[in-house]
Amino acid sequence: MLVEQTTLPDVLILTPRRFGDARGWFVESHSDQAFDRAGIPTRFVQDNHSLSAQAGTLRGLHYQRPPMAQAKLVRCTKGAMRDIAVDFRRGSPHFGQWVAVELSAENGQQLLVPEGFLHGFVTLTDDCEVQYKCSAPYAPDCDAGIRWDDPTLAIDWGVTDPILSDKDRIQPLWADTISPFTVTP
């Protein structure tokens, strides 16, 4: 597994090795042993799979509050997407900064989004399938988010009029939210 840093030190791009022959290819999409060798302590307890029928579908920005905070390992298994992670940890030197990575079925890359980060994505193709592992189960009472088009964050999603859920349309703004996550320098 190739491990690459992004501009946010705790957000990693992971590229599992593909083994190919005339039949196609095989990939070990996740391994606790590979994570151990790379020094990544995260363990996962839930797998999620979404289908977005139309390009321009935006999901996010989401997080779960402690004690059910989630790290996510995100990959695109059909089509392509622009994946976004935002540092939401008060006291972090990168607080409020974001990174965008294109994930596709073709490039096979995955994004590791640690606890304390907002996460969202926009699909670049029709019938886009996204699969992601979570380090904690979904907990509706801890579910929260920030508006995708927050002017303080000024995220470049690559779309101006995305397809949104009702929930994502009414998320609060960054300035109106106090992060439940902190880091000590």
Rank of each mutant, 00 (worst) to 15 (best):
L118R: 12
V113Y: 10
E102S: 05
F95W: 07
S92G: 13
R89N: 10
D166V: 03
G116P: 01
H119V: 11
A139T: 15
A69D: 14
G145Y: 13
L118Y: 12
C142F: 04
L118D: 10
P93V: 02
V99S: 01
P140E: 03
V74E: 01
T152A: 11
I146T: 12
V74D: 00
L164W: 02
L103Q: 06
G120N: 11
Q131P: 00
F95P: 03
I155G: 08
Q97G: 03
F121Q: 11
D149P: 08
A154Y: 08
V99F: 01
I146Y: 10
R82T: 03
R90M: 08
E106N: 04
R75K: 15
A85W: 13
D87L: 13
V122H: 06
C128G: 12
I146H: 08
F121A: 10
D168T: 05
T125G: 03
Q97H: 10
L73M: 05
W98H: 11
H94V: 12
S135C: 09
L124S: 08
D141N: 14
A105G: 15
T77R: 02
P67G: 14
D83N: 12
E106A: 14
G145P: 14
A100D: 00
A85D: 11
I84A: 12
R90H: 04
E115I: 03
T123E: 10
Q131D: 07
T123N: 09
R89Q: 11
K72P: 01
D126F: 07
C128W: 04
M81W: 00
S135L: 11
V74A: 01
D83A: 08
I84M: 14
Q110S: 15
R65V: 01
P151H: 09
H94I: 06
L103C: 12
T125A: 07
T125L: 05
V122K: 05
P66F: 01
L124Q: 13
D168C: 08
E115R: 13
P162D: 02
S104H: 14
G79E: 04
G79S: 06
R65W: 01
T77P: 00
I84C: 15
P93D: 06
F88V: 06
Y132P: 00
G116R: 02
P114K: 09
I170V: 14
R147Q: 15
I163F: 14
K167T: 15
L124D: 08
K133D: 11
I170K: 07
G91K: 13
L164T: 09
F95V: 04
E115Q: 13
F117K: 00
P137S: 08
E102T: 09
P140K: 03
